[in-house]
């Protein structure tokens, strides 16, 4: 089965509540949680795929109960301990926190603008040849699971597994999250936007011409 974050198409969630553009954060600790997560990320101990997977690995009951930034903070705490950057005793307050060997990598105020501007591009050169052209018919993996690691990270949602679509755009070659999330290498490969008729994904589509597009890596796809 899938993990709890894979919720596309799920029934029963109720109405969506629009909100004003003036609302950026909903509590005083939200911006702090955001900034702390970005600053911790700049220590270089994990990549974006590792951090997404850490959030996905929250217990389903926590994932459902936690707000957005609670998931972030929980993920950061879990990764810091996993990497040995913070000890469980430091986290629980059972002992005083000791200066870290990574302190030289601390993000300073004057570095923030540059770090945010650089971001983390995911395009990489790759030896994997482009197998599909725009307009080609393809089918996704029947099982939306990581083939390298049991219970591992993947970006093929369950609702789009085993579905037939067409190549809409070619994005070039990008880091493969299924590998990178588990520190198995970036394994870049061709990435495509693939368009699916809503009727291919849903028993009762709202409109016969509606479509869903997903960005999918070449290894998620086969020719049909």
């Amino acid at each position: 089965m899938s993990r709890v974050h894979d919720m596309g198409g799920r029934f029963g969630d109720g109405p969506i509540v629009p909100e004003s553009e003036d609302v950026i954060f909903h509590a005083d600790w939200h911006p702090r949680a955001l900034a702390l997560t970005l600053a911790a990320g700049s220590l270089g101990q994990w990549n974006i795929d590792v951090s997404r997977h850490a959030r996905e690995c929250l217990a389903p009951k926590d994932y459902a109960a936690f707000s957005y930034y609670e998931k972030w903070i929980a993920g950061v705490a879990d990764m810091l301990v996993e990497r040995g950057v913070v000890t469980p005793a430091e986290l629980s307050g059972a002992c005083d926190a000791q200066i870290s060997d990574l302190a030289t990598k601390k993000l300073t105020a004057d570095q923030v603008a540059g770090v945010l501007a650089r971001g983390g591009p995911a395009d990489r050169d790759s030896a994997v040849a482009q197998a599909f052209q725009i307009g080609d018919a393809v089918m996704t993996r029947r099982i939306a699971q990581n083939v390298l690691v049991a219970g591992g990270h993947t970006r093929l949602p369950m609702y789009a597994a085993g579905a037939k679509g067409k190549i809409l755009r070619y994005h070039g070659t990008h880091v493969l999250p299924d590998s990178n999330a588990h520190r198995l290498g970036e394994a870049p490969e061709p990435l495509y936007a693939v368009v699916f008729p809503a009727s291919e994904l849903w028993q009762h589509p709202e409109h016969p011409r509606d479509e869903v597009v997903l960005d999918l890596w070449q290894s998620y796809l086969e020719a049909v």
Binding site: A35, L36, A97, Q98, L107, T108, A109, V112, A113, L116
Partner: peptide
């Protein structure tokens, strides 16, 4: 969040002033 910020600041891993700049951005 406060506890984690305090721990990481004590460990020399986070500069609260950098957090302020991120938030302002």
């Amino acid at each position: 969040v406060k506890a984690l910020e305090t721990i990481l600041t004590q460990k020399g891993l986070v500069d609260p002033a950098a957090l302020d700049v991120i938030i302002d951005t």
